[in-house]
């Protein structure tokens, strides 16, 4: 495949976890990549691995809560004159009961998970509309539909992505843009690193497949959503949770 015809994917949160696994997955699928996160060293490591699969990789170090930086990112990206896939993995989890959550923490959570997601969808869809083709993949969570005590802020913002995914699928479908989300269960990344062994064992008991998921388990489903095999699929929230019932 020549570079000009390779699909280009923008992946946020690509420095580690699900985003990093997705970068490797899409590199294996032959895509060129733009990788975004705040840590330049980790991003550089991921980029190097992806290049070994023949991908052209550009890294951008930025904080997605800064809307101006996001605009600059897309001003640079539009010079590529192509954007086929956006996979928005960047995020963090707030594990706090209702009484212990400050409004500024809530605001920060909403800024990265909803505001940045919204702005990314706005900017990416405009580039994709030019080519009448595109694919947006958002990261929801099992807790969005199941709820989780101690995660009311996190689960509510993840649930908001369901409305966003379903509405954008309808709104952007006429210009050839698909919009789907994945809803991971318990995945072994930095995000869940703070869980005690006891808590993990308790959660594994609730997982039908009796194991914690790996970032690659999610990345492969994202890889499918970014492949031609999913070209008639939009407005779906795909659970990747090993049969987790909270």
């Amino acid at each position: 495949m020549s570079t000009a015809t390779k699909p280009l994917a923008l992946i946020t949160g690509a420095s580690r976890g699900i985003g990093a696994a997705t970068a490797k997955q899409l590199a294996k699928q032959g895509y060129d990549l733009w990788l975004v996160a705040r840590n330049p060293d980790l991003l550089a490591d991921q980029a190097e691995e992806c290049r070994q699969h023949g991908s052209s990789v550009t890294t951008k170090t930025l904080d997605l809560t800064d809307s101006q930086s996001l605009k600059v990112l897309f001003q640079e990206l539009q010079k590529e004159k192509r954007l086929h896939h956006l996979v928005h993995c960047a995020g963090f989890m707030l594990d706090k009961p209702l009484m212990m959550t400050s409004l500024s923490e809530l605001q920060h959570l909403y800024t990265i998970h909803l505001q940045a997601t919204f702005q990314l969808c706005q900017l990416a869809s405009r580039l994709m509309t030019r080519q009448r083709f595109g694919n947006l993949v958002l990261l929801s969570s099992k807790v969005a539909s199941a709820g989780s005590a101690g995660q009311s802020a996190y689960s509510s913002v993840k649930a908001s992505l369901t409305g966003l995914t379903l509405s954008l699928a309808k709104e952007l479908g006429p210009v050839g843009i698909r919009v789907n989300a994945v809803a991971p269960g318990l995945i072994e990344t930095n995000l869940t690193e703070h869980y005690s062994e006891e808590k993990k064992a308790e959660l594994i008991e609730k997982i039908a497949l009796k194991r914690i998921g790996q970032p690659e388990d999610v990345a492969q489903i994202i890889g499918f959503l970014c492949s031609p095999a999913a070209s008639y699929m939009t407005g779906q929230i795909l659970g990747v949770d090993g049969g987790f019932s909270l």
Binding site: Q122, L123, R126, T129, R130, L172, P174, V175
Partner: peptide
């Protein structure tokens, strides 16, 4: 509204700009 979306995208492509919301 769909044509408006296409219009915005086409204007940005024609003039090589990124419009403010």
């Amino acid at each position: 509204s769909t044509a408006h979306m296409i219009l915005v995208a086409e204007l940005e492509a024609t003039f090589d700009i990124l419009l403010d919301t």
